[in-house]
């Protein structure tokens, strides 16, 4: 799996420099982002969404969900959120009765001034989420500068007004001493990017110092202007990187 990862976009994109292509588009504020994941990768998708979504420093986070049908009974853990740099007291968890209610509540939260991030968890077909609904969300986000994140579990991608669409999987972590599992690692695939090339794949490693995910193929010591030599290196095996015990 690690061999298929390349920082290059799937399609070549004309005048863009290789570096610009290789850098990952941000989950910008004032936009809608879709994140697809399988049920078993749900924690990775949530971590990706919460950690990569740009947020206002003190903005509230609204996590909306519907009663689960197939998904396992899961709750956020405050300690786990704190490890990702999210203050658990900023998080409000909303359980809507059905998907329509969730969309409506999400739209209302997106319009609200003090809300920094709106995270919606959906699974399956999500019939109420169509082009119109997504466009509405985008307009609300543009007005309030909130970061809208829609998690879609076990679902087919559908055309929408989203800025980016991702597919997230868990990735093997870089082991700590004594064969212990390391910091979170995810494989992110950019399925769609409005105004840019899609198809990029990145392996993201949690960087404890920065408190955010970092491209595993780009060591942090290399200045941004230099094309990283390690970009063709696969996985995280070769890098002499800080080991956290």
């Amino acid at each position: 799996m690690a061999g298929s990862i390349s920082p290059w976009g799937g399609r070549s994109a004309g005048r863009d420099t290789p570096l610009a292509q290789a850098s990952m588009p941000a989950l910008a504020r004032g936009q809608l982002h879709e994140i697809h994941a399988q049920g078993a990768d749900w924690a990775a998708a949530l971590a990706f969404a919460l950690a990569m979504g740009e947020k206002a420093p003190d903005g509230a986070i609204f996590a909306l969900r519907t009663p689960r049908r197939h998904r396992l009974p899961m709750v956020f853990s405050g300690d786990g959120l704190a490890l990702l740099g999210i203050r658990p007291d900023r998080l409000t968890i909303v359980e809507a009765g059905n998907e329509k209610d969730m969309l409506r509540a999400g739209l209302e939260a997106a319009r609200c001034g003090g809300v920094g991030t709106v995270l919606m968890e959906s699974e399956g077909r999500f019939a109420d989420y169509d082009l119109t609904a997504s466009r509405r969300l985008v307009l609300a986000a543009e007005a309030s500068r909130a970061c809208l994140l829609l998690l879609r579990g076990d679902a087919e991608p559908r055309s929408s007004g989203a800025q980016t669409r991702w597919s997230i999987r868990c990735a093997p972590s870089q082991a700590w001493e004594a064969e212990a599992p390391g910091w979170p690692a995810v494989d992110a695939e950019l399925l769609r990017y409005r105004g840019g090339p899609a198809g990029g794949r990145w392996r993201l490693m949690w960087d404890e110092d920065d408190g955010r995910f970092r491209d595993a193929a780009r060591p942090q010591t290399v200045p941004g202007a230099v094309v990283p030599l390690s970009r063709l290196r696969t996985g995280a095996d070769g890098d002499a990187r800080r080991q956290v015990a």
Binding site: A60, T92, I93, G97, A105, E108, C112, G114
Partner: peptide, 25 residues
């Protein structure tokens, strides 16, 4: 003002969905 907006939003959602549906850790 943002804080006040968030509190008003929580009140609205609490009335629509029920206060036990809008929760915090």
């Amino acid at each position: 003002r943002g804080e006040a907006d968030v509190i008003a939003l929580i009140d609205r959602l609490g009335i629509r969905l029920g206060p036990d549906r809008v929760r915090r850790l």
